[in-house]
Design a protein around this nucleic acid. Structure first.
Length: 88
DNA sequence: ATCCTGACTGCCC
DNA sequence: TGGGCAGCCAGGA
Protein backbone atom coordinates (compact mmCIF):
# COMPACT_ATOMS: atom_id res chain seq x y z
CA UNK A 1 0.00 0.00 0.00
CA UNK A 2 2.77 2.39 0.93
CA UNK A 3 4.40 1.29 -2.31
CA UNK A 4 1.30 2.21 -4.24
CA UNK A 5 1.26 5.71 -2.87
CA UNK A 6 4.97 6.03 -3.52
CA UNK A 7 4.33 4.93 -7.10
CA UNK A 8 2.12 7.88 -7.89
CA UNK A 9 3.90 9.78 -10.69
CA UNK A 10 5.00 13.32 -10.11
CA UNK A 11 2.58 15.86 -11.48
CA UNK A 12 -0.26 13.40 -10.95
CA UNK A 13 -2.79 12.83 -8.22
CA UNK A 14 -5.09 10.06 -7.06
CA UNK A 15 -8.11 9.83 -4.81
CA UNK A 16 -8.17 7.87 -1.58
CA UNK A 17 -10.58 5.51 -3.23
CA UNK A 18 -8.25 4.88 -6.13
CA UNK A 19 -5.23 4.25 -3.97
CA UNK A 20 -7.30 1.96 -1.80
CA UNK A 21 -8.35 0.05 -4.87
CA UNK A 22 -4.89 -0.24 -6.41
CA UNK A 23 -3.28 -1.03 -3.08
CA UNK A 24 -5.84 -3.64 -2.22
CA UNK A 25 -7.19 -1.72 0.75
CA UNK A 26 -10.79 -2.52 1.51
CA UNK A 27 -11.77 1.01 2.41
CA UNK A 28 -10.52 4.53 1.64
CA UNK A 29 -10.54 5.40 5.31
CA UNK A 30 -7.76 2.92 5.78
CA UNK A 31 -5.62 4.95 3.41
CA UNK A 32 -6.14 8.14 5.33
CA UNK A 33 -5.40 6.35 8.54
CA UNK A 34 -2.19 4.79 7.30
CA UNK A 35 -1.05 8.01 5.72
CA UNK A 36 -1.54 9.88 8.96
CA UNK A 37 0.64 7.34 10.73
CA UNK A 38 3.15 6.00 8.22
CA UNK A 39 2.75 8.60 5.50
CA UNK A 40 5.55 10.85 6.67
CA UNK A 41 7.94 9.54 4.03
CA UNK A 42 5.37 9.19 1.28
CA UNK A 43 4.06 11.63 -1.35
CA UNK A 44 0.76 11.93 0.50
CA UNK A 45 0.25 15.32 -1.11
CA UNK A 46 -0.64 13.49 -4.31
CA UNK A 47 -3.60 11.84 -2.65
CA UNK A 48 -6.83 13.82 -2.65
CA UNK A 49 -10.45 13.22 -1.86
CA UNK A 50 -12.97 12.11 -4.47
CA UNK A 51 -13.89 15.69 -5.33
CA UNK A 52 -10.32 16.82 -5.88
CA UNK A 53 -9.96 18.66 -2.61
CA UNK A 54 -7.42 17.72 0.07
CA UNK A 55 -8.25 17.28 3.73
CA UNK A 56 -9.03 20.45 5.69
CA UNK A 57 -5.86 20.28 7.77
CA UNK A 58 -3.61 20.05 4.74
CA UNK A 59 -5.34 22.17 2.13
CA UNK A 60 -2.74 24.92 2.21
CA UNK A 61 0.42 22.84 2.33
CA UNK A 62 -0.83 20.14 0.01
CA UNK A 63 -1.92 22.52 -2.70
CA UNK A 64 1.39 24.30 -2.38
CA UNK A 65 3.37 21.10 -2.84
CA UNK A 66 1.23 20.03 -5.79
CA UNK A 67 1.60 23.42 -7.37
CA UNK A 68 5.37 23.11 -7.15
CA UNK A 69 5.12 19.77 -8.93
CA UNK A 70 3.15 21.12 -11.83
CA UNK A 71 -0.35 20.33 -10.66
CA UNK A 72 -2.40 23.51 -10.94
CA UNK A 73 -4.85 23.82 -8.11
CA UNK A 74 -7.77 26.00 -9.02
CA UNK A 75 -9.89 27.47 -6.29
CA UNK A 76 -8.53 25.23 -3.56
CA UNK A 77 -8.89 22.07 -5.55
CA UNK A 78 -7.26 20.07 -8.33
CA UNK A 79 -8.71 19.15 -11.70
CA UNK A 80 -9.03 15.39 -11.26
CA UNK A 81 -10.24 14.85 -14.81
CA UNK A 82 -6.88 16.03 -16.08
CA UNK A 83 -4.46 14.96 -13.37
CA UNK A 84 -6.02 11.85 -11.92
CA UNK A 85 -3.61 8.91 -11.82
CA UNK A 86 -4.81 6.10 -14.05
CA UNK A 87 -3.15 3.45 -11.95
CA UNK A 88 -0.06 2.71 -13.97
C1' DA B 1 -16.12 -6.49 24.46
C1' DT B 2 -17.81 -1.48 23.55
C1' DC B 3 -17.63 3.24 22.20
C1' DC B 4 -15.37 7.08 19.92
C1' DT B 5 -12.71 9.19 16.37
C1' DG B 6 -10.55 9.99 11.90
C1' DA B 7 -6.23 12.66 5.98
C1' DC B 8 -13.20 8.90 2.96
C1' DT B 9 -16.98 7.35 -0.53
C1' DG B 10 -21.23 6.74 -2.75
C1' DC B 11 -26.18 7.01 -2.81
C1' DC B 12 -30.42 9.44 -2.11
C1' DC B 13 -33.24 13.21 -1.44
C1' DT C 1 -25.69 22.32 -5.48
C1' DG C 2 -25.93 20.79 -0.68
C1' DG C 3 -26.81 17.94 3.39
C1' DG C 4 -27.74 13.51 5.69
C1' DC C 5 -26.62 8.54 6.35
C1' DA C 6 -24.55 4.20 6.51
C1' DG C 7 -20.47 1.13 5.59
C1' DC C 8 -15.44 0.70 6.54
C1' DC C 9 -10.71 -0.44 9.37
C1' DA C 10 -7.54 0.29 13.42
C1' DG C 11 -6.10 1.94 17.80
C1' DG C 12 -6.87 3.87 22.35
C1' DA C 13 -9.73 4.58 26.68
Amino acid sequence: MRATVAAIPEGTVATYGDVASYAGATTPRLIGRILSEDGADLPWHRVLRANGTPAEHLVTKQLELLRSEGVPSANGRVDLRAYRWDGS
